[in-house]
Amino acid sequence: MKKIILVLSLLISSPLFAEEAMSILWSNLAPGSVDLPAATNVNLELDGKTVIIPGFIVPLDGQGKAQTKNFLLTPQQGACFHKPPSPPNQLIHVVFNEPIAVPTAEQPVYIAGKLSIKSAQSGFAKTGYFMHGIEAIAYPAQVVSAQPEHQH
């Protein structure tokens, strides 16, 4: 179902369609064995690619603001400064040229942009990836599936 939503999002979004964004999931960012160090277990094949990935925003340019252009994208809901951060290969430092709306902490969002492998200290956590953001796409609040009508 996630893949269908990603494909529909890509078709609706004309700037991404022109860029041919590749939809990825968090597991794609850590392709090696779980025994490998997170700092080196990154996906070299994604370096320089335009991708789209769902996640949760943790603003780095001020908490409580309605907009941000500098944030961490995380795989888990409710990531904040009070919890231990995800491993570097599960954190993306995202920077947009223009601010985007900050959803609630419980609301995921699709972020599309050009992904780079770049280890850095970003805010409270070490990141393994950097993304120059192209577009933020609201995550559907509810997915309605087409069910055949029940006949008696």
Rank of each mutant, 00 (worst) to 15 (best):
F96L: 01
Q76H: 13
K2D: 10
H152M: 09
Q67K: 11
A66I: 04
H82W: 13
P31M: 08
S145D: 08
Y129D: 09
P75A: 05
A38R: 11
P84M: 05
G113P: 01
S9D: 06
L46D: 05
G32T: 09
P87E: 05
F17M: 15
G48C: 04
A39L: 11
T104N: 14
Q63C: 13
I53W: 00
P99C: 06
I5V: 15
A38F: 02
V102Y: 02
Y139D: 00
L46S: 07
I100Q: 13
Q142W: 03
K69L: 13
N89H: 08
S122P: 01
F96D: 01
D61S: 12
P99H: 04
K69R: 15
D47N: 15
F124W: 10
V95A: 05
E45G: 03
V102T: 03
A38Y: 04
E45F: 10
A30T: 10
T50Q: 02
G128E: 11
L60W: 07
D61Y: 08
P15F: 04
L8N: 14
K83I: 13
A39P: 12
P75H: 02
K65F: 09
I5H: 05
M22V: 15
I137Y: 04
W26T: 03
I24F: 04
V58T: 05
D35F: 08
I137F: 04
N70L: 12
N97C: 01
V34M: 13
G32Y: 09
H150C: 08
L29P: 02
G48F: 02
